[in-house]
Design a protein around this nucleic acid. Structure first.
Lengths: 257, 257
DNA sequence: TAGATTGTTAATCGATTAACAATC
DNA sequence: TAGATTGTTAATCGATTAACAATC
């Protein structure tokens, strides 16, 4: 149905739709579809079925079709989706038709790696500036960019039209950096520091915490181990939950609190 | 269903519960609570209310209480939660009472940074081995560990009781590495390569894709821009969605496909 | 036309949240 | 006892999925 608005009773016929208001879960999957589509395009496919794309993206095909239907997408029944067209549509809604300028704050271990990460450049972004608060790092050249002092943020953010800030500082500095980014008008932040940031409404923060990812995997490991060897082992409700009757996994080495 | 479970009608009184089967959303938040709790403990709190912990972890307090109730948790009405006890309980369910050995494959840009990431060590993990397929990198010393050739994986995985594999290779190598990890018995994988891995049932994979995080932020930037300046601009259904009538954002530079 | 595959429906499932009785 | 705060209920919301009519 609906030519130019998912949903039917759009008041004005002929009115071009604003950006569709996609479910968050859908937004989070579109980049994965995009990656899979680029891969398909490179291997010469110009058409793909929902089944084919879904399996390339690691999701269920009903979910894929539902997601694409929110875009008001244009597949062809009996045929599938035009790869190039779908790439264009997804890049459009994700706002990737303009390359966005990214400022990276904190050029320690991780920041260094991020500054050199080729995937940003190939997937719609341009690292436009590097910052650090440590004067001894300022001036350093990383991947063709000079590290600037965080004090210069305002000036450079304006000059480079920074759209997204990436925080790769220690947790102790992250809130201050976030405040500074917000102060110069940045409304999207990717935070690698292991802490919660508080920001005004209208500012989006996404967080990547590497240790948390491992801890989630650890839970499942623990779970799998407790299932294979079912000698009722438990948290000893209320008491200390230390070793006691653990079992079967192998490595056993208490972790300091 | 389920014989010995937190939640009321457990058959055997005195029977210790196996690991509770937590909702995935809860599992994903527990590490955040844990981090906040350690922070509170360091600043001398020995008790915290659900309201206080929730705000430190950036969630709603009803959600926090619900999450903790799945652990069969032991708060005290009118008082709050005992910080040290809660830390113990969460570390127990997450399987952090034993320090897990991690193998990191791929010591390029990102792998290098991960090998040096202190957060792993302080939060329950031990990077036990580094691997690469490039002979010219083998032998290199990173953070006190020698880079080994991926061929030696089997031998070392056994010797070090590797529990979790981290893939930081290019996408083109990631599936092969995953197969090799699975072959030596690893059942938890953290994948930084931008691709979908296929693994047998029983193996858990978590994926971190840095460009995807930025693309999600880009969507919201695009969305915010399309709302503030409402001159009906749209995807030109079916046609190319290139610049045309875009507007207002500033940076405008087409991105290559 | 027959076969294939989309877009949508509707049922189901899981997650969130406000509200409040239980209880310290 | 009065005040505070948990643990749980129940309502709501959003996401997933199988199934299938529409249609190429």
């Amino acid at each position: 149905m609906s030519q130019q608005r998912p949903g039917g009773q759009s008041g004005q016929p002929g009115a071009v739709p604003a950006l569709p208001d996609l479910p968050e879960a859908t937004v989070a999957r579109l980049p994965e579809y995009l990656r899979a589509l680029h891969h398909l395009a490179e291997s010469g496919h110009d058409t793909v079925s929902s089944e084919g794309l879904a399996s390339a993206a690691g999701v269920n095909s009903a979910k894929l079709r539902k997601d694409l239907s929110h875009l008001g997408s244009y597949g062809t029944r009996g045929v599938g989706y035009d790869v190039a067209l779908l790439i264009e549509q997804i890049e459009y809604v994700l706002g990737l038709t303009q390359r966005r300028a990214v400022a990276l704050v904190g050029v320690g271990n991780l920041g260094h790696a991020l500054a050199g990460y080729a995937g940003f450049a190939t997937r719609g972004f341009r690292i436009a500036a590097l910052f650090d608060a440590d004067p001894s790092r300022v001036g350093e050249l990383i991947n063709g960019l000079v590290v600037r002092h965080i004090e210069d943020l305002a000036e450079i953010a304006e000059a480079e039209s920074i759209a997204i800030g990436v925080i790769a500082t220690p947790a102790s500095a992250a809130q201050l950096v976030a405040d500074q980014l917000v102060a110069v008008g940045v409304t999207s932040i990717l935070n690698f520091a292991p802490c919660v940031l508080s920001v005004p409404e209208g500012v989006d923060v996404r967080k990547v915490d590497l240790a948390i990812e491992l801890q989630i995997l650890s839970f499942h490991e623990h779970r799998k181990a407790s299932l294979t060897s079912l000698p009722a082992t438990g948290p000893a409700a209320g008491l200390t939950a230390l070793p006691g009757g653990l079992s079967a996994t192998g490595t056993e080495e208490a972790v300091g609190t």
